[in-house]
Amino acid sequence: MSTAAKISVRGLNKAFGDKKVLDGIDLDVMPGTAMVVIGGSGTGKSVLIKCILGLIEADSGSILIDGEDVLKATPARARALRSQIGMLFQNGALFDSLPVWENVAFGLLAQNKISRRDARAKAGEFLAQVGLAASVGELSPAELSGGMQKRVALARAIAGAPQIMFFDEPTTGLDPIMGAVIDGLIVDCVKRLGSTSIAITHDMASAQRIGDVAAMLYEGRIVWTGPAASLLDSDNEVVSQFTHGRREGPIQMALRR
């Protein structure tokens, strides 16, 4: 199964000092599949995707993209493998020193694929794909609402036509309607590009809207995988407690005084 997977993670470990965040993660994401990783705050969901992206160095294990281990590849090859990944950050992470259009076309401009005039026009097309007018391109990111910033960040993520897309808490901080709108755009974009995706979220409604498959991260390990549609019906005690938000159960919140 792992040989056919677009992304295959095996025995991935990451600790920060004494705190072991990822403890032997095994995860396969098949081509064209939308995987949703759920789990409590601070359980290492963001660390997992940052390890795959190379933003955090994993301690050990393997991360295979198209069958090639990025942790053992040469730096140039690892960059090439990772260049097919588009990322939507939790807070958008738009470059506030640049206008919106330049944010959207940043990847194209950075690789000298396109002139600035063409990039401005192209940015308008990507903004249209996320439901924004081309005139928004002239604004600064600080002038946009949270929902609009997420849309612009999504437009920036899809501009490079990535084969793999990561979404970090795509609906956090948005009202339920805007959350549903962003989820709809994510599903549309991923389908249009035929991408494989991994989204991390606490939002069960969002997880079911954007995910084909779900995985539960708990105590540094993937403790359950299954169809995203069955999240709320899972027999797994950890998943059941988390998805229904019950205080009692195997998940004990660490309280610090």
Partner: peptide, 20 residues
């Protein structure tokens, strides 16, 4: 201040994901 704000708001990580 600019670079620090970029760091804490993930903008520097975003650069890496855009092949920069």
């Amino acid at each position: 201040a600019e670079m620090g704000t970029m760091r804490v708001t993930d903008q520097i990580d975003a650069l890496s994901t855009l092949s920069t």
